[in-house]
Write a protein that binds this DNA or RNA. Structure first.
Lengths: 114, 114
DNA sequence: TTATTTAATTGTGATATTGCAATATCACGT
DNA sequence: ACGTGATATTGCAATATCACAATTAAATAA
């Protein structure tokens, strides 16, 4: 087939998958880190800092933008990116919740082993 | 090209990407949740519970296994899966650390804005 | 030995992702 | 108007992922 059968999963499972998939490429991890550390985060600076071609960086930025994690500020002819901290928090909580619940479930099923 | 240029990123960035990519599909989120909740987690039960074909589930299990998140127990002709809690913790810490550092960096760059 | 059950593997088609060159767009400066 | 710089978009080739049918392998049951 080739496409993900999203409809057989619930909203939350799809949301967790969307966020983690967005982070799931080292270039995007690196881009998020760079933007959080540098105020002058525009496309060009990311290209220089990371070492991928401009269209590639632009594409990864679009991927991250889709989830709402980025804010844009136009200053003259430059477009600066920054982290949408509310969305970052939402993302963090969702994923952390997934881990916490999984851990709790593990402990419960193990303890029920008599 | 078609392949990820992992070599231009550092160990930690690749690790974060590997873990999040592994979680980044709703079927795998669902599989991890099911295994953490049910002791009788073998391939067949996952097939019934999730509604994807047996080879598809088996493939997703292999994907999760690659990261070390699963333990296997053979009981008769059945193969039961459970969560490797140490690895789950490692994964959780790595990702949480990524979020914490990103948030701290955001606060610092914002406060330095004059 | 001969089914049967369980799960991995193989092969295949469809779709998605990764990366980049070329191009387009848009704003600014001259 | 014209050139320049910054970034998005388009088009393309290579690779990866998703899903499943068919097959295989291994253990158990008859």
């Amino acid at each position: 087939m080739g496409f993900t059968k999203k409809h057989i999963f619930d909203e939350q499972q799809n949301q967790i998958a969307n966020f983690t998939k967005m982070i799931g490429h080292p270039a995007r991890v690196s881009i998020i880190q760079y933007i959080s550390q540098n105020e002058d985060s525009n496309c060009n600076n990311l290209v220089k800092a990371i070492g991928l071609a401009q269209p590639t960086i632009s594409q990864h930025l679009a991927e991250i933008r889709k989830t709402g994690l980025l804010k844009q500020t136009v200053k003259g002819k430059n477009l600066y990116y920054s982290i949408n901290q509310d969305k970052l928090n939402e993302c963090r909580r969702l994923i952390n919740d997934f881990f916490v619940k999984t851990q709790v479930n593990c402990s419960n099923t193990v303890s029920s082993l008599k």
